[in-house]
Amino acid sequence: MKTMALSEYGPDAPFAQIDLPQPAAQAGQVIVRVEATSVNTIDMMLRNMGTDLGFAPSLPAVLGMDFAGTIAEVGEGVTGFAVGDEVYGCAGGLADLQGALAEYMPADVRLIAKKPTSLSMREAAAIPLVGITAYEGLKRAGVSKGQKVLVHGGSGGVGHIGVQLARSLGAEVFATDTGEQRLSVVRELGAEPIDFKTETVADYVAKHTGGAGFDAVLDTVGAANLTNSFEAVALNGHVATTLALAELDLSPAHLKGASLHVVFMLIPMLHDAGRETHGAILAELAALADSGALKPVVDAPHFSLTEVGAAYDRLASGNAIGKVVVEA
């Protein structure tokens, strides 16, 4: 089968077409004919940093965690899925799990779900990693009806899903971003946009919460921005972050009695722990999409499998709106 693989790691490492043996379904697996995959920040980190991350695939490396496609083969013991089913998930591209930058991909059935019928393959492939991440963050933060929720990076991959999921939970949602186009996306998704370049944290906390702070903050920017999240959260509130890779003074969170939740959705894949949870979340996200409550924002440019290098460059440029998708 055709793959687009790396023969080395590094920021300038090129993707090259390599023919590899087509995988056969093992017990508990399906083989998916990949029709689309999306590029995530963690995919870029793997390419750039390789073995420094501790879970990079062996070379030649077939990256790509997210996918949407059609089941071509079903392994022993698999129930609930059949050849021809359209599915989606986040099931490879790290450690010993082959990724989606290939014609065919093996996937643990616990990590997949039926694709939303209302979405194209291109749209469905944009959801899994960011959807699971946003879902876990909001659930850990205990978001519920009537709360005020702040999402940092509202037009980004995790952020734009988080805005919609928080609204589906009945929350009043606010989201930071900057630039006319990004703020417009935030508004269209149903959140009150906050331009972080023109409004201070103190200003928007006063404006939107009367100074009390937000019940929950989903921080998809992380690192130094966590300080802004601690400033924005209410007393005894919750901050969920997808990026905690920084040394920070936690005093502001301590003085508010705030809870900090660090979300790393790759744990089930890396440690084979609780994988069925991801399948269940994906099924729930599919139902939300088919009900009209969830619609992924897909970046405008189209990329084919052989153009995956350009797709990575697009995400790295910072100009993408929503998710960058590569189609077979």
Rank of each mutant, 00 (worst) to 15 (best):
V34G: 00
E35W: 10
A36K: 02
A36W: 01
V39F: 09
N40W: 02
I42L: 11
I42M: 06
D43K: 02
D43G: 05
M45V: 13
M45C: 11
L46T: 11
N48Q: 13
N48H: 13
N48F: 08
M49K: 14
M49G: 11
M49T: 09
M49H: 14
G50D: 12
G50N: 12
T51R: 13
G54V: 13
F55N: 06
F55G: 03
F55T: 06
F55C: 08
F55Q: 05
A56R: 03
P57Q: 10
P57D: 09
P57A: 13
S58F: 05
L59P: 07
A61F: 07
A61V: 08
A61D: 05
V62A: 09
V62E: 05
V62K: 08
V62R: 08
G64P: 00
M65Y: 12
M65H: 10
D66Y: 01
D66K: 00
D66H: 01
F67S: 00
G69Y: 01
G69W: 01
G69D: 03
G69I: 03
I71K: 00
A72F: 02
A72H: 06
E73Y: 02
V74D: 09
V74Y: 09
V74C: 10
E76N: 12
E76A: 15
E76Y: 09
G77C: 12
G77A: 12
G77P: 04
G77M: 11
G80S: 11
G80H: 11
G80F: 14
G80K: 10
G80A: 12
F81G: 04
F81E: 05
A82S: 15
A82I: 05
A82L: 10
V83R: 12
V83W: 05
G84A: 09
G84T: 07
G84N: 07
G84H: 04
E86S: 13
V87P: 00
V87L: 00
V87T: 00
Y88G: 00
Y88K: 01
C90K: 03
G93Y: 05
G93D: 04
L94Y: 08
L94R: 04
A95D: 13
A95M: 12
D96A: 15
L97F: 14
L97S: 08
Q98S: 15
G99E: 03
G99L: 04
G99I: 04
G99D: 04
G99V: 05
L101C: 11
A102Q: 02
A102W: 02
A102T: 10
E103D: 15
E103A: 14
M105Q: 15
M105P: 02
P106V: 09
P106S: 13
A107T: 08
A107C: 12
D108C: 09
V109H: 05
R110D: 15
